[in-house]
Deep mutational scan, measured.
Amino acid sequence: GIPATNLSRVAGLEKQLAIELKVKQGAENMIQTYSNGSTKDRKLLLTAQQMLQDSKTKIDIIRMQLRRALQ
């Protein structure tokens, strides 16, 4: 079985993952909103794209940590 310490770690990672998935969803929504907007929305679009990139990276890292914890 999986050690108890790993189980609480997994629960924490799953919570983090859920949050990051919401951030990713929000960033994707912002990108959709701003991509057909005016030029003043360009900065917001770039910010949203950066957020999305960061979020995807975090999600990958969390998933990797989850896999390790579940081994």
Rank of each mutant, 00 (worst) to 15 (best):
M64T: 14
E14Y: 15
L21E: 05
L66F: 01
I61W: 13
R67Y: 09
N6R: 11
R67V: 10
Q71L: 11
V23H: 06
K58F: 02
G26Q: 15
T39I: 08
N36Y: 07
K15A: 11
V23M: 05
I62W: 00
S38R: 05
A69H: 04
T33F: 14
D54P: 00
T39Y: 08
L70I: 07
A11M: 08
D41C: 07
R42C: 15
I61F: 12
L70V: 06
Q25R: 08
K22A: 10
L52D: 01
T39F: 06
Q65G: 03
I19Q: 11
Q65L: 13
L21I: 07
G1F: 10
S35V: 12
I62M: 02
E20H: 07
L45Y: 05
K56V: 10
Y34A: 09
A27W: 15
S38L: 10
L44A: 06
A18T: 05
L52E: 01
T57A: 12
G12S: 14
E28D: 02
R9M: 09
A69T: 04
A11E: 14
P3A: 07
Q32W: 11
R68C: 15
S55V: 12
T39K: 09
S38A: 11
L52H: 02
A18H: 05
G37C: 13
A48Q: 01
Y34G: 03
I61D: 12
G1H: 12
G1A: 10
I31L: 05
K40D: 08
Q16W: 06
L70A: 07
K56I: 15
L66I: 14
N6P: 05
A18W: 07
L7K: 13
Y34E: 02
T33C: 15
L45G: 01
A27Q: 02
Q71S: 11
M51Y: 03
M30E: 04
L21A: 02
Q25D: 06
Q25F: 06
L52T: 01
G37M: 05
S8K: 08
S8T: 10
L70D: 03
Q50P: 00
V10T: 04
K58S: 03
M30Y: 04
L70N: 04
N6V: 05
M30K: 03
I31W: 02
Q32R: 07
I31R: 01
A4C: 15
Y34V: 06
G26I: 15
A69M: 10
G12L: 15
N29R: 11
L66A: 01
L17I: 02
K58V: 03
A11S: 07
M51Q: 04
K56R: 07
R67H: 09
I19D: 11
V10Q: 03
N36E: 14
Q25H: 05
K40T: 13
L52V: 03
I59K: 00
R9G: 05
Y34W: 03
L52G: 01
M30L: 12
K56L: 15
L66W: 01
K22V: 07
I2M: 10
Q53Y: 06
Q65T: 02
M64V: 08
G37I: 05
